[in-house]
Design a protein around this nucleic acid. Structure first.
Lengths: 147, 147
DNA sequence: TATGAACCCTGTAGCAACTATAGGGTCAAG
DNA sequence: CTTGACCCTATAGTTGCTACAGGGTTCATA
């Protein structure tokens, strides 16, 4: 099996669609272990790093927080353990996302209502501004919102 | 018309379901104008502030960024102007929200797939971990993700 | 051999939109 | 006159990066 060891940080970045600065940041916060250095003090990455960074990126793309990724990584390294905990983390994350979706749906419906009522006259009679104002737009302000 | 002037920051906070620190922060960043002070150097708010803060909160609740709220406030104060710009900002925001919803839907579908494949055995054979790994879970890693 | 471009290094500051402390001052009730 | 609830400023922390500034390294080319 070919080992493509000794990647520079730029190579690793290209291989994982990650910015160089992000990789260095992952190292600083302890997500990605510090690799050995070359004589010129360049980071030198191997396959393990590539695998681990890919895992991190995929998890992040799925919306896991860095904190959760840390937990997942810790679990992933304990190969004999039951994956029930992984399942719990993933399900919790899924329900967070579903919650966020329903929040955004409620929000977009409300905003659509607001927009639909806009007759696009002057600001003074604008229903969007009215809907944002304290009384919810049932009456229109006689004065500017603040002086 | 009764004027309920001379609210303390705490009163204003209670009246708008906002934290005191948040109100001070809005002032610092120029969203809410600095009110007069009492002899004891307490902020003293009037109806105008209440109205403006309510507008801010409602806009924020609808997901507008602080930057957009600033724009909306600037427009709202120019009462003779056409509200076409308001309409544009609101519609742009709506489509951002709709985009976010569809991103999250794609994401939750993907995550659900990952979870559904989990047989919940050991980590070594966990399909969630597998799905997060570089190869997408078609083969399972022979080594820990990082040493 | 020199030089230029393209890469790498550290350290720090910035983004959104607050939130949370520390270390004090003010005010009304008892 | 003390207690407790409130207010003040200033500063640091949160999340997950991103963007400098001010250097050093490497490699190809002239």
């Amino acid at each position: 099996m070919s080992r493509i060891d000794a990647m520079t940080i730029g190579n690793l970045a290209a291989a994982t669609a990650t910015k160089v600065e992000t990789i260095r940041w992952y190292e600083r916060v302890g997500l990605l272990p510090a690799p050995p250095r070359t004589d010129g003090n360049y980071r030198s990455y191997g396959d393990e790093h590539l695998r681990r960074l890919s895992f991190i990126r995929r998890s992040r793309d799925l919306g896991f927080t860095v904190k959760k990724v840390r937990e997942l990584l810790a679990l992933a390294d304990q190969r004999d353990r039951s994956c029930a905990e992984v399942d719990i983390i993933a399900r919790a994350h899924l329900s967070e996302i579903e919650q966020k979706i329903s929040d955004l749906m409620r929000l977009s419906n409300e905003l659509r209502d607001v927009i639909d009522r806009c007759g696009c006259g002057s600001i003074a009679e604008c229903n969007i501004i009215g809907a944002l104002s304290p009384d919810g737009g049932t009456t229109r302000p006689k004065l500017p919102i603040a002086g």
